[in-house]
Nucleic acid binder design. Sequence first.
DNA 1: ACCTGAACACCGTTCAAGT
DNA 2: ACCTGAACACCGTTCAAGT
Lengths: 212, 212
Amino acid sequence: MSRPPLTRDEVLTAAAHLVKRHGPDALTMRRLAADLGTAVTSIYWHVGNRESLLDALVERTVADLGEIRPRGATPHARVVSVARALRRQLRAHPHLVAMVHERGLTERMFLPAQQALVREVHAAGLRGVRAADAVRAVQFLVVGHVLVERNRERSPVQRPGEGDLWGEQAEKDTAPGSDRALARALAAPVDPERVFTTSVSALVKSLLAAGT
Amino acid sequence: MSRPPLTRDEVLTAAAHLVKRHGPDALTMRRLAADLGTAVTSIYWHVGNRESLLDALVERTVADLGEIRPRGATPHARVVSVARALRRQLRAHPHLVAMVHERGLTERMFLPAQQALVREVHAAGLRGVRAADAVRAVQFLVVGHVLVERNRERSPVQRPGEGDLWGEQAEKDTAPGSDRALARALAAPVDPERVFTTSVSALVKSLLAAGT
DNA sequence: ACCTGAACACCGTTCAAGT
DNA sequence: ACCTGAACACCGTTCAAGT
């Protein structure tokens, strides 16, 4: 009736499973122990404490993300494709993003895309500090955007929202300089995909222009 | 010896005080009750539960942020100034940012700057959907950046960091196409202020170019 | 209308004790 | 080396009872 000896790896796998199925909040030491069929205190022997369990979990998941391959003919298209790929990877692991952010490890989410970005920016003719600035600008934009986007999805209804604010403006007849199409666009729900595309494309365009 | 009757407002003020002095984690119902000199359960009568206490707290703090006034001569300078002002406001309330984000109310952080942005973008000649896209792009960039930035500050030492990754590259002698200045720049610690300026300026430049 | 203490169902963590 | 149960110091929340 006795289970085979517990391993650190087994603990991590069970933890990952728990997070994937029931969200990060479900990952309590006691529930994890129950899933594993051991005493809570056994887990402590293998992973130290909750903090380092989460650290290890984040590390493992990030390592599994996989490489990013740029696509496209122009430098602009290739850099944008890296940004899109990074966003897609992160959005495929929403719980990971939340966990990494909660633990203050946001920088960790940068690394998978960094090599690819460096190569592309260099190929586009940027050098030295200017190239580094461009890489960082894209990284911050993508990760920041994913954080904002994920967060908006978590609580879709916001109380005094843009809709209420601009909806009435869109109805009003025009004071000089007013723009009903604008008001209507702001009253409509945000399309994050669209915002992302607009932002990345615009940002990259300016950044690469500095290289020519 | 009996204290005057508790009010909802008093609860919120004490909660804000607690968060400001000891961080969001210190805001427990029990500790709050202790600070107020009442029973824990009294708080529930006034604010419902912890959820709605946090909601009310966020709402109140956001309302106190104050208006944003654009500065500068050119449209570009004025939009950038709004972005900087929003960032400064948010960074002045780090706990607020954390709380708003945790509660999935990121959109809430947009609103203070939105009117100002709309006005400036319109003045720059953008109209309708295109203007709305520009406003949103700037908003997402600023809020996303602040989230990333705050988060990096929370845990300054990251284990397999950029430094380790690029530091050795900077030492190596050059494979074809390698760029030691770039490697050195990436090995150095990030200057978020610089990244922010670069990003906003580049983004706004492209966005406004579409209006002429 | 407002406050209270007791109680419930949870947490993470420590520790002495087992094999 | 690995596992265990008991215990500690916390949580948020409910509820019946007080004034």
